[in-house]
Nucleic acid binder design. Structure first.
Lengths: 246, 246
DNA sequence: GAGTGGTCTAGACCACGGT
DNA sequence: CCGTGGTCTAGACCACTCA
């Protein structure tokens, strides 16, 4: 997906329908049509862009394929809200219990600072930029099943700091959208097996060095900008990861 | 993806372009165009189906989106061969070394019988149907990194039995295609951590019960029929699984 | 140059959702 | 009923590949 800046001019070398797609994308990201309000109808857009309806349709089809828009026959074309796009658990892939019932979440630590170098690299942060570091646990009943570290650009996620001091939402992605206007779009997961670090071992009540699964995740937004770096640990007994691919 | 039988008649209630898509799909599965031979050009197909070129284009676009066809500007429209679709290691995601160099594969056991009930269930096999069971190892150099059990319908994969008695190909999916005419299209993986069963422990030279990652995989063909059930074990030290999702 | 797919037009008619 | 998107047509011109 192309990155579209706020004042991007259309790339005239592109086919017209892709220029229109880029323009619409920019306006979608700028929240031009929100809260269930439909986009202008095809013929209006065709008039605005001074192309035929077919060309507008092609631009809209691309955005539908990219998951940005939904079209409802007889009603209109709508922006797919991030909350729906996540469809609750789109990127949540752990045990069955977790799927039936969201685990309770507790925030153990929340700080602003330099953070680990690896997180800075992954997020592509500038030298002076601060990082928001979050350490959370997820538990089913009384049993802690996941120890999770999240790193975010403090600049981009400034409102989150105050929010997380009061609330412990089970899922962060909808909050990224509603609070910080950040849509998540792609996840890259990497699983390895490692000895449990001491601070994570403590939350499970286990000895440091106990074998555990480490799940790294880099999330990007629709412009392919990295937005979140996450490292989770799960103990072997509770480990369950399911994925479908084509 | 809709299941298309060999003598399926088009569903007249469907839009014309989907009827055409179904018809082309049936012919693709019947190997109407193979070995890099292109499909007839758009205008030929339009003539054959007695529709306009635009309608044929729409059918072709659907098949491209489904990964069945590839279109090359100026050359033609081609069936995406399973071998390319798998892109060598599409579902094989272990260490970096393996990515650079295919692991050597050894077949330890090959038999035809009832197989385990779970494999029968997953493959949706009829009561009397026989199962082809394969136990293989994959090694980098002398170190065995994977113990792999594969179950297939013996009826559908009959030619494979004789072939595997002589050959140990590093990847089975291209053989499924070339030998048995079976295209793989979708994989569902499920990862858990379990004690190593005795027969798998032996191939690693480890004690039974050593913790290991178990990877279950159900593969389906383009008609969503299950074709392969696979259970692999990897030792914790060599475990590395990477996945991207949207 | 011949043949292919890629883009685009300016219409047509239909099916669906709400009034 | 009107306005929406869904399907389809019969062309046009362009860009790419290969002989």
């Amino acid at each position: 997906m192309r990155a579209i800046g706020p004042e991007a001019a259309p790339d005239l070398r592109l086919p017209r329908y892709l220029q229109i797609r880029d323009d619409l994308m920019r306006r979608i990201c700028a929240r031009a049509w929100s809260d269930g309000q439909p986009l202008p109808a095809e013929d209006r857009l065709a008039g605005e862009f001074e192309v035929s309806v077919g060309t507008v349709r092609k631009a809209l089809q691309v955005l539908v394929a990219e998951g940005m828009l939904e079209r409802i026959h007889g009603k209109g074309t709508f922006v797919t809200r991030a909350f729906e796009r996540i469809s609750m658990m789109r990127f949540v892939r752990f045990s069955e219990e977790e799927r039936r019932e969201l685990p309770t979440t507790r925030c153990l630590n929340l700080e602003v600072g330099d953070g680990p170098p690896e997180a800075r690299t992954r997020l592509g942060l500038a030298a002076r930029e601060k990082l928001l570091s979050i350490h959370r646990t997820r538990a089913c009943g009384k049993e802690v099943i996941l120890s999770e570290h999240v790193w975010l650009s403090h600049k981009r996620f400034a409102p989150l700091e105050a929010y997380l001091k009061k609330e412990s939402p089970p899922l962060l992605y909808p909050v990224y959208d509603s609070l910080c206007g950040v849509l998540v779009s792609r996840a890259m997961d990497e699983l390895t097996m490692v000895p449990l670090p001491a601070r994570d071992a403590r939350v499970f009540g286990l000895a440091a060095g106990t074998p555990a699964i480490r799940i790294e995740r880099l999330m990007t937004d629709p412009s392919e900008q990295p937005i979140e770096w996450r490292v989770s640990y799960v103990t072997q007994a509770r480990f369950h990861y399911a994925i479908e691919s084509r």
